[in-house]
Amino acid sequence: MSTVQTGATASGHQPLATGVPLLRVHDLSVGVRSTGRPVRIVEDVSFDVDPGQRMGIVGESGSGKSLTLRAIAGLLPKPVEVLSGAVEYNGADLLGMPAKKRRALMGPEIAMIFQEPMTALNPVMRVGDQIAEGPRRHLGLSAKAAGDLAVQMMARTGIPDPARRARAYPHELSGGLRQRIMIAMAVSCGPRLLLCDEPTTALDVTVQLQVLRLLERLCEDTGTSLVFVTHDLAVVNQTCSELAVMYAGHIVESGRVKDTFRQPRHPYTRGLLESAPDFDRPDRALVPIPGFPPNVSDRPAGCPFAPRCGYVRAHCTEAVPPLAEVAPGRLAACFESDRLDEVLA
């Protein structure tokens, strides 16, 4: 891909700060300030993403995974806001910096891909122009150069006949092509951090594979870091190296994907793995997790998973277990983590 000399060289990236992670999320709480006690949807979430690392955040609906991602991107829907905590990008505090400065980072440094490209694309603008918009604004390219770059980016995301497709409107393209347009748009300024919110959930399985492979290749080529939010464990296994599992607004377990899948150290992670059909082990019985996640407004005291947990003991309902290291590189928020020593096939 020598023709694409974008981003990294042209955008004048800030130099990477040494000794700090590319993205640092620290004790982040997201929720709604109301007249009484604020409703905390995401509670004290912390994680780091190093340059080139690919991190998957897995959780069920309502776990707060998407809001965490949106808080990083500064795209929280009103009236949801960041209640406390810090989000640092390359050593700089994203939440404290002026809005204008933060906006300038979105595109050349941080970019986001959404689940439903149709709602994220402008329906009355040709897709080529939409891709070219970022490079024109952030990289200062001329209309002509940005247009050429847009076609190059489309070719790079595997869109056949890119020069012709660049003149199409979003509704004229299929779901898979629209998602590729979104990706082309996101990577057009060569970002260092790509935030993905269920980018393949709406796609057919063959197209999903193509899009996942594309993301993988783009990240490998440019050293881009990925934060990938999904509900699908198998997709995380295919795409990411690191994993954080969210439940009821908390990260309950994190670590390397392979290690976590092999030997989960939090009962919820284990429950997720045992309840999902595994194509490679068709005869394994599915073990559902009893009950359903707590409502945001009345989460139980203590460990939020305690009411559904098979390992629960009295102290679980008294205090929230902290996310602590249970093995090298493995964190789990469970008092009973030591009892989970089984290796799943």
Binding site: G176, T206, L209, Q210, L212, N237, D278, D280
Partner: peptide, 25 residues
């Protein structure tokens, strides 16, 4: 065969044996 190759796998890594589909239906 292409459908099977496209399944995101939980245990194995997916394979690349030429049956994956390009483009869309």
């Amino acid at each position: 065969r292409a459908l099977i190759d496209s399944i995101p796998r939980m245990t194995e890594t997916s394979v690349n044996d030429g049956f994956e589909l390009d483009g869309e239906p």
